[in-house]
Nucleic acid binder design. Structure first.
Length: 110
DNA sequence: GTTGTGACGGGTC
DNA sequence: CGACCCGCCACAA
Protein backbone atom coordinates (compact mmCIF):
# COMPACT_ATOMS: atom_id res chain seq x y z
CA UNK A 1 0.00 0.00 0.00
CA UNK A 2 1.20 3.46 -0.82
CA UNK A 3 1.14 5.93 2.00
CA UNK A 4 -1.09 8.95 1.56
CA UNK A 5 0.61 12.28 1.10
CA UNK A 6 -0.16 15.83 0.12
CA UNK A 7 -0.33 16.50 -3.62
CA UNK A 8 2.83 18.06 -5.02
CA UNK A 9 2.90 21.09 -7.30
CA UNK A 10 3.32 18.92 -10.34
CA UNK A 11 0.36 16.76 -9.40
CA UNK A 12 -1.81 19.82 -8.84
CA UNK A 13 -0.85 21.04 -12.31
CA UNK A 14 -1.90 17.69 -13.75
CA UNK A 15 -5.22 17.73 -11.90
CA UNK A 16 -5.88 21.25 -13.14
CA UNK A 17 -5.42 20.13 -16.75
CA UNK A 18 -7.49 16.97 -16.40
CA UNK A 19 -10.27 18.88 -14.67
CA UNK A 20 -10.85 21.02 -17.77
CA UNK A 21 -11.16 18.11 -20.22
CA UNK A 22 -14.59 18.60 -21.88
CA UNK A 23 -17.25 16.00 -21.22
CA UNK A 24 -17.73 13.50 -24.01
CA UNK A 25 -14.06 13.64 -24.95
CA UNK A 26 -10.83 12.14 -23.69
CA UNK A 27 -7.20 13.11 -23.52
CA UNK A 28 -3.95 11.20 -23.25
CA UNK A 29 -1.30 11.03 -20.54
CA UNK A 30 1.25 12.51 -22.91
CA UNK A 31 -1.07 15.38 -23.95
CA UNK A 32 -1.76 16.22 -20.29
CA UNK A 33 1.96 16.25 -19.57
CA UNK A 34 2.51 18.71 -22.40
CA UNK A 35 -0.47 20.84 -21.36
CA UNK A 36 0.90 20.95 -17.82
CA UNK A 37 4.12 22.24 -19.32
CA UNK A 38 6.33 19.63 -17.69
CA UNK A 39 6.56 16.01 -16.68
CA UNK A 40 5.86 13.08 -18.97
CA UNK A 41 3.26 10.41 -19.60
CA UNK A 42 4.78 8.35 -16.78
CA UNK A 43 4.65 11.22 -14.33
CA UNK A 44 1.03 11.96 -15.22
CA UNK A 45 0.13 8.32 -14.74
CA UNK A 46 1.67 8.30 -11.28
CA UNK A 47 -0.16 11.52 -10.39
CA UNK A 48 -3.56 10.21 -11.49
CA UNK A 49 -2.95 6.91 -9.73
CA UNK A 50 -2.90 8.98 -6.51
CA UNK A 51 -5.79 11.17 -7.66
CA UNK A 52 -7.27 12.42 -4.35
CA UNK A 53 -9.79 14.66 -6.17
CA UNK A 54 -12.04 12.04 -7.75
CA UNK A 55 -14.62 12.58 -9.15
CA UNK A 56 -13.79 16.27 -9.15
CA UNK A 57 -10.90 15.38 -11.42
CA UNK A 58 -12.28 13.19 -14.23
CA UNK A 59 -9.30 10.89 -14.39
CA UNK A 60 -11.44 8.47 -16.39
CA UNK A 61 -11.19 10.88 -19.35
CA UNK A 62 -7.47 10.27 -19.55
CA UNK A 63 -6.43 7.34 -21.70
CA UNK A 64 -3.28 6.08 -23.35
CA UNK A 65 -2.04 7.40 -26.68
CA UNK A 66 -3.01 4.14 -28.37
CA UNK A 67 -6.61 4.45 -27.16
CA UNK A 68 -6.34 1.88 -24.35
CA UNK A 69 -7.95 3.12 -21.14
CA UNK A 70 -4.85 2.62 -19.02
CA UNK A 71 -6.04 2.26 -15.44
CA UNK A 72 -8.52 3.46 -12.87
CA UNK A 73 -8.48 3.88 -9.09
CA UNK A 74 -5.01 2.46 -8.96
CA UNK A 75 -5.95 -0.65 -10.92
CA UNK A 76 -4.88 -1.61 -14.43
CA UNK A 77 -7.37 -4.44 -14.60
CA UNK A 78 -10.42 -5.81 -12.82
CA UNK A 79 -13.92 -4.48 -12.09
CA UNK A 80 -12.57 -0.95 -11.60
CA UNK A 81 -11.71 -0.84 -15.28
CA UNK A 82 -15.23 -1.84 -16.26
CA UNK A 83 -16.46 1.11 -14.24
CA UNK A 84 -14.19 3.48 -16.15
CA UNK A 85 -15.42 2.13 -19.48
CA UNK A 86 -19.02 2.58 -18.42
CA UNK A 87 -18.43 6.16 -17.25
CA UNK A 88 -16.97 7.07 -20.63
CA UNK A 89 -19.91 5.58 -22.52
CA UNK A 90 -22.17 7.46 -20.14
CA UNK A 91 -20.65 10.70 -21.44
CA UNK A 92 -21.02 9.66 -25.06
CA UNK A 93 -17.55 8.24 -25.63
CA UNK A 94 -17.57 5.14 -27.74
CA UNK A 95 -15.43 2.44 -26.16
CA UNK A 96 -14.54 -0.51 -28.33
CA UNK A 97 -12.82 -3.50 -26.74
CA UNK A 98 -11.40 -1.39 -23.93
CA UNK A 99 -10.12 1.25 -26.32
CA UNK A 100 -11.28 4.67 -27.51
CA UNK A 101 -11.23 6.13 -31.01
CA UNK A 102 -8.79 8.99 -30.44
CA UNK A 103 -9.40 10.42 -33.91
CA UNK A 104 -12.97 11.23 -32.88
CA UNK A 105 -12.94 11.65 -29.08
CA UNK A 106 -9.49 13.12 -28.51
CA UNK A 107 -9.82 16.45 -26.64
CA UNK A 108 -8.16 19.53 -28.08
CA UNK A 109 -5.41 19.65 -25.51
CA UNK A 110 -3.12 19.06 -28.41
C1' DG B 1 23.10 12.07 -4.35
C1' DT B 2 21.70 7.17 -5.89
C1' DT B 3 18.35 3.56 -6.98
C1' DG B 4 14.02 1.65 -8.14
C1' DT B 5 9.30 2.13 -9.79
C1' DG B 6 5.22 3.46 -12.60
C1' DA B 7 -2.69 4.41 -14.74
C1' DC B 8 3.33 5.95 -20.64
C1' DG B 9 5.24 6.71 -25.60
C1' DG B 10 7.70 5.78 -29.59
C1' DG B 11 10.87 3.08 -32.17
C1' DT B 12 12.71 -1.56 -33.74
C1' DC B 13 12.55 -6.40 -34.61
C1' DC C 1 0.49 -7.03 -35.20
C1' DG C 2 2.83 -8.77 -31.05
C1' DA C 3 7.19 -8.75 -28.31
C1' DC C 4 11.06 -6.12 -26.91
C1' DC C 5 13.80 -2.13 -25.76
C1' DC C 6 14.90 2.47 -24.51
C1' DG C 7 13.72 7.08 -23.10
C1' DC C 8 10.94 9.86 -20.42
C1' DC C 9 10.08 12.54 -15.60
C1' DA C 10 8.35 12.91 -10.86
C1' DC C 11 8.40 10.58 -6.40
C1' DA C 12 9.64 7.51 -2.35
C1' DA C 13 13.21 5.13 0.27
Amino acid sequence: MKEDREPTGFEMAVYDVVRRIPKGKVSTYGAVARAAGRGSARSVGSALARNPFAPEVPCHRVVRADGALGGFSGHTEGPEMDRKTRMLREEGVEVRDGAVDMTRFGAGLE
